[in-house]
Design a protein around this nucleic acid. Sequence first.
DNA 1: GTGAAAGCGCTAACAA
DNA 2: TTGTTAGCGCTTTCAC
Lengths: 336, 336
Amino acid sequence: MSLIDAKRRTIHDVAKAAGVSISTASNALNGTGRTNPETRDRVRKIAEEIGFRPNALARGLLQKRSHAIGMLTNDTYGRLTLPMAAGVSEVLVDQGVSVFLCATNNDPRLARLHLDALLDRQVDGIIFTATRLDLKPPVELTRLPIPVVYVFAEGPPESVAFIPDDAQGARLAVEQLMRLGRTRILHITGPEDYQAARTRAGAYRKSVGEGAEVLFGNWSEEWGREAVDTVFGREGSKPDAIFCGSDEIARGVIDALRDVNISVPEDVSVVGFDNWEVVSKQTRPPLTTVDMELKELGHQAGLAILSLSKGEVFDPGVRKLPCSLIVRRSCGAEQT
Amino acid sequence: MSLIDAKRRTIHDVAKAAGVSISTASNALNGTGRTNPETRDRVRKIAEEIGFRPNALARGLLQKRSHAIGMLTNDTYGRLTLPMAAGVSEVLVDQGVSVFLCATNNDPRLARLHLDALLDRQVDGIIFTATRLDLKPPVELTRLPIPVVYVFAEGPPESVAFIPDDAQGARLAVEQLMRLGRTRILHITGPEDYQAARTRAGAYRKSVGEGAEVLFGNWSEEWGREAVDTVFGREGSKPDAIFCGSDEIARGVIDALRDVNISVPEDVSVVGFDNWEVVSKQTRPPLTTVDMELKELGHQAGLAILSLSKGEVFDPGVRKLPCSLIVRRSCGAEQT
DNA sequence: GTGAAAGCGCTAACAA
DNA sequence: TTGTTAGCGCTTTCAC
């Protein structure tokens, strides 16, 4: 009903149809002030009937709150962003808050343009998302008149940030491998200049032993294959488990092992990181991997920005959210 | 400067600081009406200095245009949506139009909630995106007071829609295979109840011959492997080329061929569909595939909604945008 | 319990 | 060329 009406109804129309004043209509609709229950119900019924929908622009102008937030992201493909964004809007839509999506492509000019637009629109807050922890926002995000929440990025000191707990995720992976009795665990991961790679590697070494071998490379399948070729081609004892820094690397690893007739998980157990299902569900065997709980990250970030935008106190700091382990056949219970 | 000011400046502040009236300030800033060039420059300079940014809410309220549009999508993972959305906002951001992202997860309740929110916010238009052509929007999108553009979805009659030209894309693939001298081309694709699968298969048959074999299945790697096992395990002549309905299928096909020592592209050429780089760049050899030009789809959709929202005439109908062929080694020129 | 009036920040007639 | 005025749709005192 409300949708298929060509002309928009205003609170004026409601008031007239109900035979009350505008302010009474407003009070009745919002449950503010004192209103006779009968009047209130009558007004609401009429509003419903004529398809009245409040103009969010007018409301925002007056309340100085737009009930909208902006999401600034430099992730082009959306692999991290979209699941997260879905989490954000999931918790916000019920609160009447909408989300502007701004893809900056890591271009400062674009970022600036988007930021200005968001500010002009009086958004109640901004969520900034990066694709890697150590990437700085492409624009100055401090001293804005509105709160900012960082996701997958550590903001300046005293800011609110949410990141996955990479160390705990890595421990999850290593513990699973140890539980299966694996003793010669290898870690193949991405570039050492990624903070996430270093953190995961650090946690791995802490669990396995400080001398444990880490092969830094890049995030690709090809690197996974290459690393396996190197390790299994050289002299000395071979690993009986490989913890990979990403699902893509893990896929390369599994393929390479397959090529040299080493079976997974019987001979070598493999664990990945990301739970990017297009990869992790398609490996043969399917990949046990660490899930960063992106949606939950989004939920938390959404709740945080909501709270902050209401002026509530919210302790600053970097919050590390636990990862979970998705157990599939590449390293599972069934294999013992 | 403009960003780091805690308090918001209004046009009132500008007018006072410049010693002119509010309307003169408005005219000067927007270049409307007649203003003395000197006054205009002075006002603009002062506005800049004190960090004035116009309140989009107030402006929208008056102009009855919010300069914002909504994007309603049922794509959860964002594989199609995000590149497209980036295209949309790329053409709109320069026009001062922002984009609300609404992920419906195909849930009618959510869709309704989002749609109501968009309408309340007075968006100037809506872009509806689906993940498959034959999926109906989860809410009634006709007879809205604002224009709607469909992407990856055919709206009701007389609506404006943009979809990739699946038939042309399929022809591109088949022609490439024929150009290489392949004569026994097979098509392995997704479920027959996907319109895109049927269209691609139809175009393929038209090029190759009406009796040409099509194997419908699903969009997975596993199906690609299974199909290859079937085809190469049975009696009779074997294909020398395989056109796959998706990159994932193609990846399965390539892996399965590899398993039985059939080399790609020497023995069998393979072409995929999607150019989803996480898949197509990682196959061995890298995959020649059809790119649906998602970003361009977004550009067009953005321009269309912009034009429609201004009340300009825009011919209704389904516009099929050409796909392009990305040639990689699985079926390339070098192989001859 | 209800209504009149002011005003959010801005634009656009119209007057001066 | 500039200023005065009205008003977009709504919320919110404050009289009645």
